[in-house]
Write a protein that binds this DNA or RNA. Structure first.
Lengths: 348, 348
DNA sequence: CTGAAAGCGCTTACAG
DNA sequence: CTGAAAGCGCTTACAG
């Protein structure tokens, strides 16, 4: 009577054994049939008592918790990627699982990762997801379960599954969008760190150019810090002499595009009339709110989060596509283009 | 040998009983002393085996999990508030707890809330935090534990604790900042829904005016949708005839300020020379990135998240200040002003 | 100082 | 069709 009611309390009230209660409450069990009247009695008793199974007891016995561990580097500095978390949680809930989330800080120190993992393992999580807010490589820590999935991250060793955006294809599509509008001098305002995303997007940029037989002009590939101020400085691209000046700029991300808008405005030019711009991320509160609204590539955070859970739960049906890579498998998720008003034909 | 090592395995290897292992591994127990050599032997065995306690078994026995449930409405649509979650998780980790997070969608339906709570309770969480991404009132669901804390939300009944930003005081400070710069015609560009934040910030606005003996001019209080486009429309305030036009505008949030900047620019005016602006939220990637950077009131999300965990864990030392309210208690956290470059003296 | 035993709340062969 | 019993991996009086 002190705490919450247990199976035994329900059994007593229904006048049956705990075995029967357990069987009834857990649905049919192979070969075991309980007649409807008994079932009814049990259900009534459970309801009356407000019985809720103790998942720790159940988990102990079944040797599995209905919980998934979600380790991420940092949830706060890059708010737009949290939809991975939200989607993962929703998918977990849909499958009667709960999500333990733990942040390990940025950059993630291996010992902190290790501790987080140990703690999760002690709590008997049935699966682990290791997420990063920015696409990057991560070194698996010792004794990480085989079933662990890396989200928005690629495992550098082991035979794990990794889920990442199809950066290269997306960058190619972004630049192709510009090409199709008639642009031929297209700059890439790149991030100045050697992130995996930067390399891949640059590749995609080159791919698209090659497709149109355009020789890349090194002056049109500039690297700046990936924030608004870097974007403002990217405005210098416009100061190039007439024939060399780009008519369109593909930005590494939306924040740089936001800065670039400023640089363009300060020079008295207009987007998209004088210059077309394509961003990357479709960052909330930014891309759609710029003036004019920014055409950009959407990072499929929700799809990625959902796929991670489907994968660790052995469900993955929604976005098939795993390909071998290193010892493991990788899934590249498409980044759809979001067309808004920052792209037009080049001025003549 | 199949699964992970248990206490029994450690006991065997160390040549002692499980009782001894348990006592050693859990630190001193009152009245029980194990001689150092034995302790040493046990620790060695545990290390060698890579023993990790099974928290489900421990929890079952101790009748407490080391887990806290964090229920929030939506984590994705309002990315800036996720630092509440991050801070809560960090504080939980600091106290050897894990955080279960579950989203219940927005607006949160009572039945979904109920299910989330049930699931968390089944998992034997030792405490519950109910968070909202925007400050609002929430109806506790039936049988919610007494110790539940409402975060960025006020419980409408019961004797719960609620943690919210000190909106009114913050709005007052925001307007006072303008007053101190010499402004006397100050508008409030308000949200057009009847949220609790809107009401409170309006109060604070009136408080500050009253402090300077300024009669509020109803034409200077306008309500618009709380996004960028609402902010743009707020620019109409500037179209008021000369003597009635405000020299400064206090915005309900940073996104409206972002829109207002646009409205001001389109009219060929400059901030802060022609108009001073103060925002609210200190939203990441917005406030500091506007041109000029926006002076605004910072919502203390991290402090709130941390306090919530401290409170449910019975620790709260860091931000004392609970006051009675209704049947429960409330803690109002200060929103510090973040001075940037959008405030100057009024033009003459 | 150390261990045998009971018990946390379940599930699951197994027997009747 | 139904129940007694064992056991999941711990902790904690209690006895020796």
């Amino acid at each position: 009577m002190t705490g919450r009611p247990t199976l035994k309390d329900v059994a007593q009230r229904a006048g049956v054994s705990v075995t029967t209660v357990s069987v009834v409450l857990n649905g049919q069990r192979a070969g075991v049939r309980v007649p409807e009247p008994t079932r009814e009695r049990v259900r009534k008793a459970a309801d009356a008592l407000g019985y809720r199974p103790n998942q720790m007891a159940r988990g102990l016995r079944r040797r599995t918790s209905q919980a998934i561990g979600f380790i991420s580097d940092e949830v706060t500095t890059t708010p737009f990627a949290v939809s991975m978390l939200a989607a993962a949680q929703e998918e977990a809930a849909r499958n009667d699982h709960l999500l333990f989330v733990v942040n390990v800080g940025k950059p993630a120190r291996p010992d902190v990762m290790q501790r987080a993992m140990d703690s999760l393992v002690e709590h008997q999580v049935s699966a682990l997801i290791v997420a990063r807010m920015y696409h990057q490589e991560v070194e698996p820590v010792a004794s990480m379960p085989e079933s662990t999935v890396f989200l928005n991250a690629r495992a550098t060793s082991g035979s794990y599954r990794s889920i990442v955006p199809a950066e290269r294809a997306a960058a190619r599509a972004a630049v192709r969008e510009l090409l199709e509008h008639g642009h031929r001098r297209i700059a890439f305002l790149d991030d100045d760190t050697n992130t995996i995303a930067s390399g891949l997007r640059h590749q995609g940029y080159l791919d698209a150019l090659a497709e149109y037989d355009i020789a890349p002009d090194p002056r049109l590939h500039v690297r700046m810090p990936s924030g608004v101020s870097g974007g403002v400085r990217g405005g210098e691209l416009i100061d190039l002499p007439a024939g060399q000046r780009p008519t369109a700029i593909f930005c590494f991300n939306d924040r740089m595009a936001m800065g670039l808008y400023r640089g363009v405005r300060h020079r008295g030019l207009k987007i998209p009339d004088d210059l077309s711009v394509v961003g990357f991320d479709d960052q909330e509160f930014i891309a759609s709110e710029l003036d004019p609204p920014l055409t950009t590539m959407r990072l499929p955070h929700r799809e990625m989060g959902r796929l991670a859970v489907e994968s660790v739960l052995g469900l993955d049906t929604s976005y098939a596509g795993w390909t071998e890579q290193g010892g493991g498998e990788i899934s590249l998720l498409e980044c759809p283009i979001v067309r808004r008003d920052s792209v037009a034909s080049p001025p003549d």
